[in-house]
């Protein structure tokens, strides 16, 4: 999944304007996404990308848009 497609997915899924979804944007502080919405988004993303939840190792992995993208696409090339 490209970074652009990833941002579009987040925008559609959370009704957040696409221009606000930047690499260093914090889900909680910049996009105002609360915990349960975050779980919902991650469930949606992992289904879309056919991944298991076990790719996430802690809070830091979900802190910013860029970090989450990096973690979820880590194994794409393999």
């Amino acid at each position: 999944m490209t970074f652009e497609a990833f941002c579009r997915f987040i925008s559609d899924y959370t009704h957040t304007p696409l221009q606000e979804i930047k690499e260093n944007a914090s889900f909680r502080d910049d996009l105002g996404i609360d915990s349960l919405q975050m779980v919902n988004l991650i469930v949606g993303l992992t289904q879309e990308m056919r991944l298991g939840m076990d790719v996430l190792a802690g809070s830091e992995d979900m802190a910013t848009v860029g970090k989450l993208y990096q973690v979820l696409t880590r194994d794409e090339d393999k």
């Binding site: 349960l36 779980v39 991650i42 939840m53 996430l56």
Partner: peptide, 14 residues
């Protein structure tokens, strides 16, 4: 129930 389920889904492997 929804928060327990979310907590379980996200952290059971951690």
């Amino acid at each position: 129930p929804s928060i327990l389920k979310a907590l379980y889904t996200m952290t059971q492997h951690l």
